[in-house]
Design a protein around this nucleic acid. Structure first.
Length: 750
DNA sequence: CAGCCTCGAGTTCC
DNA sequence: CTCGAGGCTG
């Protein structure tokens, strides 16, 4: 039969299509396994390819059958990004790190503290090797794999289903599974397979991979699943995301359960009852490291009981109930050839070491961060020594390691090999880009360029921040593109992005004549820009790049103020109070310095208080300032940054020009209704049944705002034992006061 | 006010 | 990923 006829699906009924898809899936799967097992191929490449194309043809005709097994899953996915995006139903977190035994006992101690346990006797843990690969989340519904997603930024991953299906450790169907089961684990490549792959790559004149991790990552992120199939990848399951029903009561049993579902799990997973046992297992794994046949970079410890894991919950990016105990970093000596200065978005001058290239932990390193001038000098501003007080000089032999196996840093300097004619590094006091003075604020570790937006470096960095993933995230407009557009004078400030198409009228013409741009990509870019004219308030605030106002603070501001105009109104109003606060704070700082010199006791808060009282700030302004400062997580420093940014004429004008192009969306309240949603609560005194942090987390998950101090805006004060001044103030203000038990009762009923 | 815990800002290499 | 520093807790 001709291929063309084989791909003709016009006469196919939906019912037959379903049956045929299943059959094709089976055949392709079998061919796949045979391929993996090294058996004789069941299908020729052409046959294999034809079957895949028929699947695609059928799925195009019956889109609702699409998905389960499409060898090219992202039919119709945007071509620019390559892979479709998949939001994770449950965020994929990273892990906190321990480097020394001490950190492990600290970890256990903090868990006990959080749970209110006197000792670790009742706790037990699992310990397993930390595989050095890339994490993958597999979603099964009714026992069938429906997609596989990379970690991405933790919230949204990339759809690599087609590639995951070529990995023999990943079953397509599992039995007796909950309706929804997301299995998480690590994709990796063995040492042997890595070596063989590089030999093949070399033979074909292709690029060699630096290490198995990169090889595995490169292989999984192939647009053509056939290439992935030819790369021998493996998968260890160690965790899970969304579950329609629990699969076990402990971490260890859950791993066993994953095994029964047909997943490979790491054979060195153990249960440990004490810190000593954890460390012993760590040493044992460390001893076997070289003979495992795959890369690991540490050992992961997790609280075994899942109910406790749930109680412990998560910090912003890491779970409280797990930690990665890392192996010591690899070290390498090389020569420091020079020191360059980079200028960041906030004007920070950051020194970067230019090194004679050296291999550290499987990667060739030629740059390393030097942090700031104190780090180079070997002493911080308080006179505490860094690296034993050894300064770093151009020409020195320096020892390099990759902090957390990622960021290259200087660990040590070999003074014995320092040549006579080296000189101490002279940190610039002028911005190397714009020549403005670079000043170091009192007590600040960084020196900053004072040029503001005059400084090209700052302008570019601000633009890069504006288009970054957590901000406007414009597809086709990454760091490289804004840099280029800025260099051409096409984009000077964020608002220029939205006039790019108009301003150049024939912008399309101009753009598509430029190298790397065609008509299609230019059109796609303008479309992508247009799409972002509707923007969520929090993203907008973050994108502005106001100092000290990051992703979290922006989101909190958005949740509180809901609309842009309201936020601006309050910040504008707060300006007078902000000025008064700064003056009072400066006075307090001067007082402190004088007090330290005169060995008197400093009473900073009182100096500040009295200075503020004298300032006589208008009531409305003070109220606005208080509203900002009393927001949970915000304080005077952030509030000052906000006021500064919005009261600066040029900056404000640029912002106004920008928002003229935008439709600003109010944030959706992330929490469903509960009895306490929207209420502001304050905890005080000693809580008996819950620890403070736990109570706070729980209240927030129910939509309540947790504040630190009682004010008129407080709805409920939860008073534990020995509640003091806060309870008195609440009574004075007529705020509702509850004890811990009635609070718990209230939220449990809700 | 000291000691956490988080967040923000800066960084490298693929 | 790490450092420094802001903000909160006790």
């Amino acid at each position: 039969m001709k291929l063309q006829d084989y791909l003709d699906v016009s006469k196919l009924t939906k019912k037959n299509a379903q049956l045929e898809l299943d059959e094709l899936a089976r055949q392709i799967e079998n061919a796949n396994s045979a391929y993996h097992a090294g058996d004789d191929p069941i299908l020729t490449d052409a046959e294999f390819d034809a079957k895949k194309r028929r699947v695609k043809a059928i799925e195009t005709k019956f889109p609702d059958l699409r998905g389960l097994f499409s060898p090219d899953f992202q039919v119709g996915a945007p071509a620019a990004s390559g892979f479709g995006k998949i939001p994770h139903a449950v965020r994929m977190m990273s892990l906190g790190n321990a480097f020394e035994d001490r950190d492990v006992s600290d970890f256990v101690r903090s868990i006990c503290k959080y749970l209110g346990l006197a000792g670790a006797d009742d706790l037990s843990f699992t310990a397993e090797p930390k595989i050095d690969g890339l994490s993958l989340s597999l979603r099964y519904e009714h026992g069938t794999l429906i997609h596989a997603a990379t970690r991405g930024d933790g919230s949204v991953g990339e759809n690599v289903t087609a590639n995951a299906l070529t990995i023999s450790d990943i079953p397509r169907e599992i039995e007796n599974a909950p309706e929804v089961l997301e299995v998480r684990g690590e994709v990796y490549m063995s040492h042997a397979d890595f070596a063989a792959l590089n030999i093949r790559q070399e033979k074909h004149g292709a690029k060699l991979f630096a290490n198995p991790r990169n090889a595995a990552a490169g292989s999984l992120r192939q647009l053509d699943p056939d290439i992935t199939r030819a790369r021998p990848l493996h998968f260890f399951a160690y965790s899970w995301g969304q579950l329609s029903s629990p699969i076990a009561e402990t971490q260890f049993d859950a791993i066993k359960r994953l095994e029964r579902f047909g997943f490979a799990t790491n054979p060195l997973t153990r249960q440990c009852g004490t810190v000593a046992e954890l460390i012993a297992h760590y040493r044992s794994i460390e001893g076997q490291r070289a003979s495992l046949g795959y890369d690991i970079d540490g050992v992961v410890y997790k609280v075994d009981r899942l109910d406790l894991q749930e109680r412990l919950g998560f910090r912003s990016t890491t779970p409280r109930w797990a930690i990665a105990h890392k192996f010591p970093a690899e070290l390498a000596w090389t020569r420091l050839e020079g020191i360059d200065i980079q200028v960041g978005r906030t004007g920070a001058l950051s020194p970067v070491a230019r090194l004679q290239p050296v291999t550290v932990g499987g990667v060739v390193v030629s740059n390393a961060t030097l942090h700031n001038e104190d780090y180079i000098r070997g002493f911080d501003s308080k006179g505490t020594s860094i690296r034993g007080g050894k300064d770093i000089r151009v020409g020195d032999w320096v020892q390099i390691y990759r902090a957390g196996d990622v960021i290259p840093k200087v660990a040590d300097v070999d003074l014995g090999r320092r040549s006579q004619n080296t000189v101490e590094y002279d940190f610039p006091t002028k911005c190397p880009v714009c020549g403005s003075p670079a000043l170091r604020a009192d007590g600040d570790a960084v020196r900053r360029c004072t040029g503001g937006l005059i400084c090209d470096a700052q302008a570019v960095e601000k633009l890069r921040h504006f288009v970054s993933r957590a901000a406007f995230d414009i597809e086709g407009m990454g760091a490289k593109q804004v840099e280029q557009f800025h260099a051409d004078g096409w984009i000077k400030e964020p608002s220029d992005i939205f006039t790019l198409e108009d301003r150049f009228g024939r912008g399309m013409q101009q753009l598509k004549n430029r190298e790397g741009w065609g008509e299609k990509s230019a059109k796609a870019l303008f479309e992508a820009i247009s799409k972002k004219r509707r923007v969520e308030l929090g993203k907008l605030v973050f994108a502005l790049g106001i100092r000290n106002v990051g992703e979290v603070a922006s989101r909190d501001l958005a949740l509180h103020f809901k609309v842009w105009d309201r936020l601006v109104e309050i910040v504008d109003l707060a300006l007078l109070a902000a000025i008064a606060y700064r003056k009072a704070d400066d006075a307090a700082t001067r007082e402190r310095i004088a007090a330290v010199q005169g060995s008197r006791r400093a009473r900073i808060s009182e100096v500040r208080k009295s200075a503020l009282a004298e300032a006589d700030v208008p009531k409305a302004s003070q109220a606005a300032w208080d509203e900002l400062v009393e927001l949970d997580g915000l304080g005077p420093v952030l509030a000052l940054s906000l006021c500064d940014a919005l009261s600066n004429c040029e900056e404000r004008a640029a912002i106004d020009r920008l928002i003229a192009h935008l439709t600003i969306l109010s944030p959706e309240d992330p929490v469903a209704d509960s009895r306490v949603s929207g209420k502001t609560v304050v905890f005080t005194g000693t809580l008996v049944r819950l620890k403070r942090a736990e109570a706070k987390k729980q209240a927030e998950s129910l939509g309540a705002k947790v504040a630190g101090t009682v004010s008129k805006k407080t709805d409920i004060l939860i008073a534990g034992e020995d509640a003091g001044s806060k309870a008195a103030k609440a009574a004075e203000l007529g705020v509702k006061i509850m004890n811990e038990d009635s609070w718990l009762e209230l939220i449990e009923r809700g």
